[in-house]
Amino acid sequence: MGDVAAVLEEGSALAEDAAGPLARIYGEPLAELPHDLYIPPDAMAVMLDAFEGPLDLLLYLIRRANVNVLDIPMAPLTDQYLLYVEAMRSRNLELAADYLVMAAMLIEIKSRMLLPRPKAPAGEEVEDPRAELVRRLIEYEQMKRAAHAINELPQAERDFDWVEVWVEKTLLRRLPEVSVADLQNAWRGILQQARLHTHHLVQREELSVREHMGVILRRLRAAGGFVDFVDLFDASLGAPVLVVHFLALLELARERLLELTQAEAFAPIYLRLVDEHGAVR
């Protein structure tokens, strides 16, 4: 029990230096542990359960001492780590197995740091004995932060519960859509209007679908990108012009330069201009 008390006292002293008093009792700060404090037999086991492995314990000691992980002082770090491991060995040999492997690695690094380093060939740097340990610590800390970030995300049955809602089919609103039949009926209405303005003058006229496509696009831009389907056709121009104009409209819809839409079923059809990114204006 003496080793456990020594570890706890050493840890409490370092923690007090870094983060204030060890604890507060009735509002008064507790600077040090009482000498007659009773430590339960499983106190060290509870403390060790807070660490997920030797790397977690090492990272805790480094962050508590507020040192740079790229420049670890091996001597004090190894001494503090061995205090924890010695207390751990006296309580739980099975749990201390992985920690003993890390302790051997720290002692080896500490020994290599004390030995004179051989001169490196020209243009090369001498490898730091701490390089492998630093790499493992950095990778472990990154994975630990990533796991913490994932754990903070909302999780089903922890932060919220799934809710099932039953909805009557009769309450479902029919989504507006333009069918082929709706387009045919609208087109027949325009043709009927065109027949009322039929001219008996027979002449040949060159009509360009591309030209009418440009006319439709200019009309949509001038109207702010939204035009009634019927207003786009002038029945007084005659059926040939209307046919070419309709073909131009279908070509623009096929090339996704405009969109046909309805507010609801059997409602008037409207044309909407689509920008170069495919978004409806």
Results as ranks from 00 to 15, higher is better:
residue 137 L to I: 11
residue 127 E to P: 02
residue 87 A to D: 12
residue 89 R to M: 15
residue 165 V to I: 14
residue 92 N to Q: 11
residue 107 I to H: 14
residue 71 D to R: 12
residue 164 E to W: 03
residue 124 E to M: 03
residue 164 E to V: 14
residue 113 M to Y: 11
residue 79 D to K: 07
residue 170 T to G: 05
residue 67 V to E: 03
residue 101 V to R: 10
residue 168 E to I: 01
residue 84 Y to L: 07
residue 172 L to Y: 01
residue 174 R to I: 13
residue 126 V to R: 09
residue 175 L to A: 13
residue 115 L to Q: 10
residue 170 T to S: 08
residue 87 A to G: 15
residue 173 R to T: 13
residue 146 A to N: 04
residue 139 E to W: 03
residue 105 M to E: 13
residue 139 E to R: 12
residue 120 A to D: 02
residue 86 E to D: 15
residue 81 Y to Q: 04
residue 80 Q to M: 09
residue 160 F to T: 04
residue 83 L to D: 03
residue 104 A to R: 04
residue 161 D to W: 06
residue 159 D to E: 09
residue 133 L to Y: 10
residue 154 P to Q: 08
residue 118 P to K: 13
residue 146 A to V: 00
residue 176 P to C: 01
residue 155 Q to E: 14
residue 163 V to H: 04
residue 74 M to P: 05
residue 109 I to N: 07
residue 146 A to R: 03
residue 152 E to G: 08
residue 117 R to Y: 02
residue 135 R to K: 04
residue 176 P to Q: 02
residue 142 Q to E: 14
residue 134 V to H: 01
residue 144 K to T: 07
residue 89 R to L: 12
residue 96 A to P: 13
residue 154 P to M: 05
residue 166 W to P: 06
residue 135 R to P: 00
residue 85 V to G: 01
residue 164 E to M: 01
residue 144 K to A: 11
residue 103 A to D: 09
residue 155 Q to H: 14
residue 97 A to Q: 11
residue 175 L to Y: 08
residue 68 N to Q: 09
residue 166 W to V: 06
residue 119 K to W: 03
residue 108 E to L: 13
residue 125 E to R: 02
residue 157 E to S: 08
residue 67 V to W: 00
residue 122 A to M: 05
residue 171 L to R: 09
residue 81 Y to I: 02
residue 84 Y to D: 15
residue 86 E to T: 15
residue 174 R to M: 10
residue 154 P to G: 04
residue 168 E to M: 04
residue 115 L to T: 06
residue 176 P to R: 06
residue 115 L to R: 11
residue 147 A to N: 06
residue 173 R to N: 11
residue 144 K to L: 01
residue 125 E to A: 10
residue 89 R to N: 12
residue 166 W to N: 07
residue 120 A to Q: 07
residue 73 P to A: 10
residue 98 D to E: 14
residue 77 L to G: 09
residue 161 D to K: 12
residue 133 L to D: 04
residue 133 L to C: 10
residue 77 L to V: 15
residue 110 K to S: 15
residue 162 W to D: 10
residue 114 L to A: 11
residue 144 K to G: 04
residue 102 M to L: 08
residue 128 D to C: 00
residue 96 A to L: 12
residue 90 S to H: 13
residue 116 P to Y: 03
residue 101 V to Y: 05
residue 78 T to W: 09
residue 95 L to R: 09
residue 172 L to K: 03
residue 93 L to H: 05
residue 71 D to V: 10
residue 153 L to G: 01
residue 71 D to P: 03
residue 175 L to I: 11
residue 97 A to I: 07
residue 140 Y to H: 12
residue 154 P to K: 04
residue 126 V to D: 10
residue 130 R to E: 08
residue 157 E to D: 13
residue 73 P to Y: 06
residue 77 L to E: 12
residue 133 L to H: 03
residue 93 L to G: 10
residue 84 Y to C: 13
residue 120 A to C: 02
residue 145 R to C: 09
residue 130 R to V: 01
residue 141 E to A: 08
residue 80 Q to D: 07
residue 78 T to M: 02
residue 167 V to S: 04
residue 136 R to I: 05
residue 152 E to S: 11
residue 158 R to P: 06
residue 143 M to G: 07
residue 73 P to L: 08
residue 127 E to Y: 00
